[in-house]
Each structure stands twice: as C-alpha cells, then as structure tokens.
Design a protein around this nucleic acid. Structure first.
Length: 684
DNA sequence: CGGTTAGGGGTTTTT
DNA sequence: CCCCTAACCG
C-alpha cells in the first residue's frame, strides 16, 4: 500500500476526512505522492468509485503522471476511470458531450478575429492625447484577464473601476467585446477561456450534472476566480486542494493568492495540513531559495526542513562577459557533465533565451528538447494542413479560409475575407454550397464595404473583374459561371485554389477517419501548392540565391511533419476530436530526448538533478517592466524561487555582462547588471 | 490617394 | 510570431 511510504504529515493529509482540506506543500515536499496517496485512500479504503474523483492539475502531463502512479497501485483500468486533466481539458471533455459541434480555435486566430473587430471602431470622437486607447493586442489580453478574474460585472464597468484613466473608452471597449462574442458564437469558435465559461454556463442548465465525491486540485495557488467558480459549480462533497503560495507565478493569468489565503475563511470547517519535509533538494540549494523568498512578505510562517544530506554541492555562480559566450559556456558544461542529459534542465525567464541556447547546444551535438508547441504546431506546413482540414469540416470557418487564401502572391487577408464572404452569400451561409451550387439570383456577391462606399469612384466593387483571365485554366462551365470568379483582384492562383477547394469538398464527403483525411489533404493540390511556396521560401539563401540542397531538405522536413501528423491522427476516430485535441494539447507535446529547455513557468512541478538558470540580469530576470508594477517584483521573486527549487543536486546560476548583438539608443553595446536575486541570495 | 500586401526587426509568462 | 514601414496596385 503506497500510504505506508508516506511520512507522518503526508499520511495525515492523504487520509484526511471528507470535507474541505487544504494542503500547504512547499517545493519538493512530496506533493505528488500525497495526491496519489489520497486517491489510493479514496479508492482503496473509502470505496469511492474512480469516476467519482476529479483530479485537476495545471498541465496534462502532471495528471498523466499521477494517473500512471495510480495505475501502478491498482490497475490501468481503474486509474483511467478517474476524471483527470487541466481545467481546460476537463471542460472540453464535458462540452464535447453536451455540445459536440463546438470548435476550439488557436489563440492566434481568435486574436486576429478580435483585431478585425477592433479596427472597425472609431476612437476619434473620444480620443485623448494623454491616454490613447489600448492597442487591440493589449485590449484582448486585458479582456481575457478580466474574464478570469471578474464573474459578474460587464467589461465596460470593470474598465471604469479598474482602469479609470480609460473610462472614456469603456463604452467602445464594451461594444468591441460584445461584437467579438457575437461573432465567435456565429462562427462556432471557442477559445481557452470559453471552455471554462461555457462549461459553467452548461452546468447551470444541466439537468444531470456530473457529481464528484471529491475534487482534488493541484497547484491551487495558481487558480483564478473563473476556475474557482467552476469548482463551486460542480458542488463536490469534498475538496482536496494542494498548493504553495511561494510558487504562485501566474498572476498575469488572474491567479489570485487570496483564493488559497482565504480558504479557511470561506470554508469554516476547513482543515489545513502543512508539508515541510523537503526530499528534493540539498541544503545549500534550499538555503539559497529560502534566503531569497524571505524578502517577500510571508503569508504564513513556513519552514522547509532539509532531509537530503548527500551530495552537497554549493550552488555555483557563472559569470560571462557576453551573452553567447554564456550560452556556449553552459553548453560546454552540459557536454562535460556526467549527469544523464534528460536529468539536466536549462531554465530561463523569457522564451527569447531559448533560441541561442538551442543553437549552441546543437553546435556541440548535444540533443535538447523544447516544448513541442513552438516547434511543431506552429510550423506553417502543419498549420496549413490543419486549416484545410478545419475548413472542410466546418465550411463557415472564416479564419481557416483566410489562412489558406493568403498564400497566393497578390492575395492577402483582406481579399481572402471578401472571397469568403462572397462565397458565404452565394451559398446562403455555407461556402461549400457557394462553391458547389451558387445562388443563381446573385450576380455580384461582393458587398461594398463601408469605408470604400463613401468613395464612389475608387469602389472597385462596382466594376467586377473579367473571367477571361482564367480562360486557359480549363475550368468546367459549371465552375466558370460562378460569380465568385469576378472578384476584381482574384488572380489565377487564387481561382485555381477555389476550384481545387470545390473538388476537395466533394472528395471529403467520403472520408470517415482523421487519418484518411490527413492523407487526402496532404496529397491534394491545395496542400501541395502551399508547401511549394514554403519550400521556395526556405530554399532561399541570405544572399538571395536559390539552393537546390536546401530545397531538398525543406521538402523532406515538410513530409516528415505531414507523416508525423498522420501518425498522431491515427489515435482519433472523429474529425472534430482530432482537430480540437491539436489545439488543446499542442503546446504540451515535447519532441526528442536530451537536455530540457524550459521557461521557469513551464518548469513548475518538475525536478531535475542538474539545473542551470541563465540570463540572470536585471531587466531580464527580474523582467524590467514587471518589476516596476505593483506586486510585480514579489512575483518575479517567486519565479526565481520556483527556478531554484527545481534542482535536486547541482545548481548553476549564470549571467552575462553584455550582449554584442544588441545596441542601446546611443549605438553602444548593451550592458547588463547582475540580477538582484543573486545579491539577495548572497552569491555576489 | 487609399487600401493592401510584402518584407524587415523586436519579443513576458500559459491553458 | 506581431508590428511597423515601404512598395505596389487600381
């Protein structure tokens, strides 16, 4: 029985009575073992059915690990019956049941949609010199933040209250988000926030809502009010929340330390357990972490007890004169290290550090792995395939359509959007019908848009283009008569893509499984057209010459990725499940084997024998902009604390005094001061 | 001239 | 990857 392996504090927590239990688990105190022990206790001793347990974690990887450990105790069959995952993935699974037609879109697409709505607004009448309106990007982020922290007030009112200097724009902002929500609903799009918001909405109306005996929440310090409200809506019999306020590093996402801080006020019968015995790190590492975190105001008194005495290497400060010299120096140390590569992690505050490190490691032939999202799912060839797929499945998906029709030279987002809207009009709401059987009553599907209708002369929609330019493309008459071809800016490549899209739509009707869909698309004209463009771009050398060798490499790389996507798709039986999973889980996939390259945020919950924290310079870590905000430096300090406590045995902290590749406004080479955390830790 | 597209430089963190 | 500016088109 795994409970016997727990220490006294862990055991008392894991076997706590049903109710509202809060477990304060400092870094490395066996939090995972305690959660697994708790589940073992629920199933083994209290006869709770696995499906009556909900385990909420911060990453899907964390939940998989815990489920695996539960499987080792009982069986795979039992462990898999537990409802486990991130808030988002659990919400998604629920929504899939209550409304299967919802489509989860990548955040980048949603942001583009938001911008297109933002740009239609007229800020002139209320414009103020001192406080110009927020940019579309910032407003989207702010709105997203608001959704996570405010559950009742309208956005405009929230702005009034929380950003009083922008009160003058509150009505416009509210108007933007209203149209944004409406548009999303119309297009059938969901973003990450919508998963949680919609789940709450459906739960309130569900006549047979899921009922859990106990909900276990990992990383409780990083929950926000939206997530908290979901837990409340689920009305579990019992709560088991595990967290550590010193590791709260997601304030930008609405994480609110007060949720964990007020737990005992909110649940008056709450029990609090504290895990203080650290099993992960050696004394010198913990001492460093404690010295720095002590500079933050303490919410509760807290002591970390060292249990690990051997080995005993003091944390080492590494100083380099130049940024890349630093990366190279670390790559060399990694190369010489006897620690297995997968037990080594290089941590950084900003993702911008990763490229340099990855490159220097590669020069020395050291394998490294980065979170998959940026690598694989952001590749244009992968996105293109998924966009075509998405469009075939959901012919009203405007974003997918635009992404595809941006490729031909001379066409861009704007014309692509006009083509989409034209087809939608011709097809009475569906671009599929618009291509296959356009409404014969419409001869001009292009509505003049507002800005150009005021300028009658330059409004090209009055004059439709001629279809004679497509004469030699040998389109059948049935297609040639489609008025969509009369768009004045439509060129031959674009017309060809439209024709091929029509064909693909027809072929796709016979395709049943994701794996066949991926294959059909990859072999089709449209995909080949797009990768051809990508290949030509990638085969271009910096001096402008074309490299046949690079061309070959690019083609091979693209087909490898297409095959990888096909392999992933084999696991899925339904189109929508596959596509949604690609959005939901794309960032969590890691590729390859070797040294771990992670942001500090991404390293949360993980541990490594040997850890390097790089770019510890003022301005970068702590981040310059954030350090000046209220509570910002405290959060940066917690971030440093998290980074340090990832290390089990060896810890290296490094910084560089200059960056030769960057100059300041006076064209001098950029210089740096070492991070204040190094001083606070007594290393300088 | 206005709107769009194409190409060059900088980037806070996540589901 | 997003933002800004220059070139381009009608």
């Amino acid at each position: 029985m795994p409970l016997s392996k727990l220490n006294r504090e862990q055991y008392l927590s894991a076997t706590a009575d049903f109710g509202h239990n809060l477990i304060i688990a400092s870094a490395g105190t066996g939090k995972t073992s305690t959660i697994v022990g708790r589940i073992a206790h629920l199933i083994g001793n209290l006869q709770v059915a696995p499906e009556e347990i909900l385990l909420l974690t911060f990453t899907n990887k964390a939940s998989q690990e815990m489920i695996e450990r539960v499987a080792n105790i009982f069986s795979k069959e039992i462990a898999n019956r537990i409802e486990a995952g991130t808030f988002h993935s659990v919400s998604y699974r629920y929504l899939k049941k209550v409304n299967p037609s919802l489509i989860l879109k990548p955040e980048s697409d949603i942001r583009t949609l938001f911008r297109s709505i933002y740009e239609k607004r007229d800020f002139q009448s209320t414009f103020s010199e001192e406080t110009p309106p927020y940019s579309s990007k910032y407003l989207y982020e702010l709105y997203s933040f608001y959704q996570n922290v405010e559950l009742e007030k309208y956005f405009g009112d929230w702005i009034d209250e929380n950003r009083p200097d922008h009160s003058i724009y509150a009505d416009i902002y509210q108007d933007i988000v209203d149209e944004f929500e409406e548009e999303k609903r119309e297009l059938g799009y969901m973003n990450f926030n919508d998963l949680l918001i919609l789940m709450r909405w459906y739960l309130e109306r569900d006549s047979n809502p899921p009922k859990y005996r106990e909900i276990l929440v990992d990383e409780y310090q990083d929950t926000n009010l939206l997530q908290e409200s979901l837990i409340e809506k689920l009305q579990p019999d019992s709560l088991f929340c595990v967290g550590d306020y010193d590791q709260s590093i997601y304030a930008f996402n609405g994480a609110n330390i007060e949720i964990i801080g007020n737990f005992t006020k909110k649940y008056r019968n709450a029990k609090v357990f504290t895990l203080t015995k650290n099993y992960r790190s050696t004394a010198p590492i913990l001492n460093l972490a404690n010295r720095v975190i002590e500079k933050n105001e303490r919410l509760y008194p807290k002591e970390l007890e060292v249990t690990k005495r051997e080995p005993n290497y003091p944390p080492k400060l590494l100083k380099y004169s130049e940024l890349f010299e630093q990366y190279r120096g670390i790559a060399e140390m990694v190369q010489k290290s006897k620690t297995p590569k997968k037990e080594i992690a290089i941590l950084f505050r900003n993702n911008s550090s990763a490229d340099g490190i990855e490159a220097t490691l590669r020069e020395l032939g050291i394998p490294s792995k980065r979170r998959g999202g940026r690598g694989f799912f952001e590749m244009k060839e992968v996105k293109a395939l998924l966009d075509i797929y998405t469009l075939l499945l959901n012919p009203k998906d405007m974003m997918a359509f635009i992404h595809i029709f941006e490729y031909p030279k001379g066409l861009g987002a704007s014309i692509a959007k006009e083509l989409f809207q034209g087809l939608k009009l011709l097809g009475d709401g569906s671009i599929y019908r618009g291509l296959i059987s356009p409404n014969p009553k419409i001869s001009n599907p292009f509505k003049p848009n507002r800005s150009s209708s005021q300028l009658l002369l330059s409004n090209y929609f009055v004059e439709l283009g001629s279809i004679s330019k497509f004469a030699d493309l040998n389109f059948p008459d049935s297609f040639l008569s489609n008025p969509i071809l009369k768009h004045p800016r439509l060129n031959r490549d674009g017309a060809m893509l439209l024709f091929e899209l029509k064909k693909l739509f027809s072929n796709f009707r016979k395709v049943k499984y994701p794996v066949n869909a991926v294959e059909t698309i990859a072999n089709g004209y449209i995909y080949r057209y797009i990768i051809n463009i990508l290949v030509r771009q990638r085969a271009k050398l910096k001096n402008g010459n074309y490299s046949k060798e690079k061309e070959k490499e690019a083609i091979e790389a693209i087909w490898t990725r297409a095959k990888l996507l096909k392999n992933i798709s084999k696991k899925y039986q339904e189109h929508r499940h596959f596509l949604n999973a690609m959005v939901l889980g794309s960032k969590e996939l890691t590729q390859g084997d070797g040294v771990n390259l992670l942001t500090v945020h991404a390293s949360k919950g993980l541990e490594f024998r040997e850890v390097y924290i790089v770019d510890l310079m003022e301005g970068r870590f702590p981040n310059k902009k954030l350090a000046t905000q209220v509570g910002g430096i405290e959060e940066e300090r917690r971030l440093f604390y998290v980074a340090v406590t990832r290390a089990k045995e060896r810890l290296y902290l490094s910084y560089a005094e200059s960056d030769n590749n960057r100059t300041n406004s006076k064209r001098e080479i950029r210089t740096f001061q070492p991070s204040r955390f190094l001083t606070e830790g007594g290393l300088i």
